[in-house]
Design a protein around this nucleic acid. Structure first.
Lengths: 232, 232
DNA sequence: CGGCCTGTTGATGCGACTCAATTCAGGTGG
DNA sequence: CCACCTGAATTGAGTCGCATCAACAGGCCG
């Protein structure tokens, strides 16, 4: 059984470049945890007992306001970790994690993991790289929210999605939207109505084609211009 | 001369709990760099050759839009590091750093530092904690920008400043605003005009007293309510 | 078939940015 | 020491983006 976990860990970025012995020790720490659709994994403010690696499914990390509006900080996909920052800062979770689909995860309890970390410089290095990349992501979102309007954020999102999927950006390429448009709206820091209108405008401007959850890029150049943003 | 640097490092959070030998080795890596007022230390997008520790002065990390508006991601004070994330992610700097006053810094070149890091688990642990705390900070800013209006952000800022200065929040306590109000506005994700109006409103509501750069808290309870935010 | 969730579209209102005018403070040079 | 200049702060009027509220269409499932 631990071997199975080792095999899983081997494929995960966070653990790339680690020795087999290292991986085995980590695998022994890990606890399998499954979550049904639409269930919380942890709540913002709860004391962190460890962090998770998502094996299958999708998780959203959210902040929500008093009146129920929510902002999606990150959509977590298979192979990614979440909840790490709370472990290293020795603080409560900074956001709420909710399983959007049936999720299979590995949970790493804080104390044993930190003990192991002290003996594994390669693991520490990987975690630093992971956190740093997350910081980039957060920084870019801050830039978007403070300096760009919704249309710029949406344009950037579409282009990014395209690049992720096809490795390049060109007319005729298509990309998928995540789960629901309501989620995408929350991710872009807006609401579904506004997203709907913005997509309709893009379509009427001949920038994209929309079909269900698929978007086809028609005019990449103009999209890129919009993504640069205009707000003052 | 390296001894002097060692003495400086000893007082810095990032290096708390390190052995003397460790500190000395680090001190040998470090290069002193000074910057005049209003000069850039690095630009967003520039390849990162290392990171900095601020010894004296103040630095702003900013994103700016095409039309010149800027958003301050972080105001860096003495003892804090900046530019670390770019080092670990092996990527360009995600934002621009500008010295607001005359600044004395220590610069740690990337490659030697990473080499040293591999031999110092305690240092790695400290860096992880530092990055994690920064992520908290960024996450909270995202929450503010997406879910709260300007008045809520300002209220939160004032209260936080007060807690930092006095360790508690109570009527009659005063706190200082950073450098200029224009900077504070950029930090709160708004512009100076709006900040000015919001401060005036707070004052007319009897929440605070304003005198130059000093703010005296009059009604902490209402302020805390405003900080909770109202936006949808 | 009837509820429920998601998505779309319209009308309306509010918050905050824009532009412009004015005051004020600090620093410089005559 | 005062006149001058520059950048910051303040205040008003106007505009715009986007959230809100509400009504409605389509798809899915019990």
């Amino acid at each position: 059984m631990p071997n199975e976990k080792t095999a899983i860990l081997r494929k995960i970025y966070l653990y790339s470049g680690l020795q087999d012995a290292d991986l085995k020790a980590l695998a022994q720490l890990a606890v399998s945890r499954a979550f049904p659709r639409q269930t919380p994994i942890f709540w913002e403010g709860k004391e962190a007992q460890g962090f998770y690696i998502l094996i299958t499914g999708q998780v959203k990390l959210v902040k929500s306001s008093l009146k129920g509006k929510e902002y999606i900080i990150r959509l977590v996909g298979p192979g990614e970790t979440f909840g790490e920052a709370a472990v290293f800062a020795e603080s409560p979770y900074p956001a709420t994690a909710i399983a959007l689909e049936v999720c299979q995860t590995l949970f790493f309890p804080k104390t044993p993991f930190l003990r192991h970390l002290a003996d594994s410089p390669a693991l520490a290095r990987n975690m630093l790289a992971t956190l740093s990349r997350l910081m980039f992501h957060l920084t870019r979102q801050l830039e978007d929210l403070s300096l760009k309007e919704v249309s710029a954020r949406l344009a950037r999102y579409i282009l990014e999605r395209c690049r992720e999927t096809h490795g390049r950006i060109a007319a005729g390429l298509t990309c998928e939207l995540p789960t629901t448009k309501t989620h995408l709206a929350a991710y872009l820091g807006t609401i579904s109505e506004t997203l709907s209108r913005t997509l309709a405008r893009f379509k009427s401007l001949g920038l994209i084609e929309v079909d269900k959850g698929r978007i086809t890029i028609i005019d990449p150049a103009t999209l890129q211009n919009m993504a640069r943003g205009s707000k003052s």
